[in-house]
Amino acid sequence: MLSIKDLHVYYGGIHALRGVSLEVPDGKIISLIGANGAGKSTTLKSIMSLVAKTEGSVEFDGVDITKYPTRNVVKTGIVLCPEGRRVFPDLTVAENLTVGAYLRKDKEGIKADRDWVYELFPRMKEREWQLAGTLSGGEQQMLAVGRALMSRPKLLMMDEPSLGLAPLVVKDIFAIIKQINEAGVNVMLIEQNAKAALEIADFAYVMETGEITMSGTGKELLASDEIRKAYLGE
């Protein structure tokens, strides 16, 4: 469904992505792992057109979206749940979710999706009228995921959903990711927590200094000696 070919991105003089190609097939969870500064976030941001691509193409459901502005990328059904949660702190939980559905006009559908998000995260329903800034880190991450889901994406891209969260909360978040995927949303996941990311992934890519160096199913990579040494510390 999503296919990226030979993507190049520059930050000023720095060559951040050096020809990244990857595929996200239908119905799967894809993980992208790698060290700091490998270009994982940049890959997601360039898919969203939040950073400019110099070369390469991005195709989604057969449509070339390489040159789409961010809002049109969201309209075609890709959404990014940004790194560090970035909820709107002085808006209520309900308002945050409404902003997530910003590009949609179908009131009934929005309402149904809001109910779905509240079903996924009952805690959000309880805190509907609370300001998002007063939520705990885990709750904010749940809200950020919920907000992203409100655009009814076909592909949900998550940038470090486990960042700064307690291990128990991380477990919850990964269980929810699985649930979201089972509901028919494709998920692409960036993680530094390589073990969790590989366990959940149907297929995974490993990035190093702006290039994809390895790929395989989650199980294959978990079993590979190289990965165990470099990312799992064994």
Binding site: R86, V87, F88, D90, G100, L103, S151
Partner: peptide, 19 residues
Amino acid sequence: RAFKAIREDEIAAEAMGIN
């Protein structure tokens, strides 16, 4: 609401599809 979202966090607002 879009105005408020921009005030709170420009990048997140843009990622939600706000121009």
